[in-house]
Design a protein around this nucleic acid. Structure first.
Lengths: 338, 338
DNA sequence: CTGTTAGCGCGTTCAG
DNA sequence: CTGAACGCGCTAACAG
């Protein structure tokens, strides 16, 4: 920059001001500076600028399971939203592990991100969140809700899951199993609650044996499904708690030589992009993943603008997508109902 | 940091050195500094450190289609590999558009990333790469190869595609169509070359009408498939150039009321994680996506260590996964052949 | 083993 | 409309 200043015959102050348009300058000097910039191939150093200004124009995203298509839609949306706002995205994978999550969040904060988006892991309340509070970094929580005074965005889980179970009951099932995600996550707990609520209001007895811990993961869900099928009175229908577990459940079902929906019905949380092209065509709850990401960024940006604004918790609607893995033969093409 | 120094009764230099372990210090002062750090809740400012040191310990990843599961695996692998090396990841979506790509790459470079990973778009040779060269940022190209003196990693495309077509020919097909990706991408060109090579060596005549531009995208591939099916002499088999197009092709096939593989065979580049659980079970080429990401990071890091080392181009092997969308009934379970 | 000092590249009061 | 000078928080010679 000093070089540019010299070449343009002005001071660095002036160069800085014409670059940022932060105070008037004569047309002549502006042109001179611009010319000098072009000729020197000058590239501003965002770091130095951030140091001086006290703001980096960058956002951190700490999330788990980057290979999960669900979260990757979120990442794409966050990147896009951050981009239009002139922010760059720093990405970190929490691995669903509180210790690692804390490391990730710290490095992000130490890099002076202006704000942080976090999908908190189960142990976050004891590790990451206390640290974040003392660090005074603006944060919005994503996907999972926590009982803390922070902005949060996530989907509705209870009603949609209940809807899934309602449907299974309508079709005539009473032995309905559920593969649940990591215990302690609000998403898991809310989905379980939805499951029980639907059972209760239909008068279907609740059987704890039918609730299997799939740990939000494929392989664990697969084992859980095998265990369910080994029951004296195995389920005639299963509801999957997320997309990964759906894969695991199906694998187990396949390994038993069973077929969906003829031998066992399957409905699931999380849609797949291709779900209506392959058999079995899955009846699912679809989450508005992109909206989740962009809303989270909006919340964060407005928080940055007004740190003292009231805290907001937002629930996004999920959609029931009726296809045919539920085994009712009413589905005529894919039908989406709110 | 000044505060820590004062509280510990030492100079900032000492604080810096005990933090970084960059020179010996007496046990006493080390303890004092550590105590002061704990009590003040001091958090190092990575920006200032980077400014002073001239290195950010961060890597930039400029890639397109973050919603593509293929690239997302790459992102996950890159994040992981960067993490273990103590680097943070800055992410930008190029949108497969040279103009936007240049913007992304510039902001990444202005943020002083130590190095850059780029999946160059078609126009990159005219926009991004010249800029990168003058900017003197260490770069490794990812996925697509370009005729420039830079480190590059990608998969083998020609032989695997030929293998796909070979197989179709063995099964007895002679009207074999192909949906190709964005023209100009090396991946596209190489895959087309593999297609033609297989045709040629089997003595199957090449028909330009059977090569449809799917633009690497779902919807465009869908339209292309419809056009192919409208031909006087429609294909009896199709090979898809990537995962997105596979979805589009299948949608069109479905819309015509046709079935894979009975009415038309389909084989594809890019595997799906769930591909052996749903019908039709796709016969595909599987790329080592994670390896691609981690290798790219390794190349970049070693480039940073030794800027004058010879340039390296690496080809990773892709795998033929035999399932049943090819219509040959030989597939007994999923079989992977190198 | 420890302190002093000079930058890293930029924004931003202050004077002119 | 423009410049000089200070400081952002930290590292790295150079002394001691």
């Amino acid at each position: 920059m000093a070089q540019v200043a010299k070449l343009a015959g002005v001071s660095v102050t002036t160069v800085s001001h014409v670059i940022n348009g932060t105070r008037p300058a004569s047309e002549a000097t502006r042109a001179a500076v611009q010319a000098a910039i072009d000729r020197t191939g000058y590239r501003p150093n965002t770091l130095a600028r951030a140091l001086a200004r006290g703001g980096t124009q960058s956002l951190g995203l700490a999330i788990s399971g980057l290979s999960n298509p669900y979260f990757m839609d979120v990442v794409a949306a966050v990147e896009a939203a951050a981009g239009v706002a002139g922010h760059t995205l720093l990405l970190g994978d929490t691995r669903e592990d509180p210790e690692h999550e804390l490391r990730i969040v710290r490095t992000l904060a130490e890099r002076q991100v202006d704000g942080l988006l976090l999908a908190p892991s189960v142990g976050a309340l004891e590790t990451t969140l206390p640290w974040l509070e003392s660090a005074e970094v603006p944060v919005v929580l994503l996907d999972r809700f926590l009982d803390v005074p922070l902005d949060q965005v996530g989907c509705d889980n209870e009603q949609p899951t209940a809807k899934l179970v309602d449907h299974l009951i309508e079709v005539g099932h009473t032995r309905i199993a559920m593969a649940i995600g990591i215990p302690g996550l609000s998403t898991t707990d809310e989905r379980v609650r939805g499951y029980r609520m639907a059972l209760d209001r239909a008068g279907v007895p609740f059987d704890p044996d039918l609730v299997a811990d799939g740990g939000s993961q494929r392989d664990q869900a697969r084992e859980a499904m095998h265990a369910l099928l080994d029951l004296d009175e195995p389920p005639t229908a299963v509801v999957s708690g997320n997309n990964f577990m759906t894969i695991g459940l199906l694998r187990a079902i396949n390994e038993r030589g069973l077929r969906v929906p003829d031998d066992i019905a399957l409905v699931a949380f999380d849609d797949f992009e291709w779900a209506d092209l392959f058999a079995p065509r899955l009846t699912v709850i679809r989450q508005p993943t992109s909206e989740l990401g962009s809303r989270a960024v909006e919340l964060l940006l407005s928080r940055l603008e007004d740190p003292s604004a009231p805290i907001r918790h937002e629930r996004l609607d999920a959609t029931f997508v009726h296809r045919d893995s539920c085994g009712c033969h009413a589905a005529a093409g894919a039908t989406a109902t709110a």
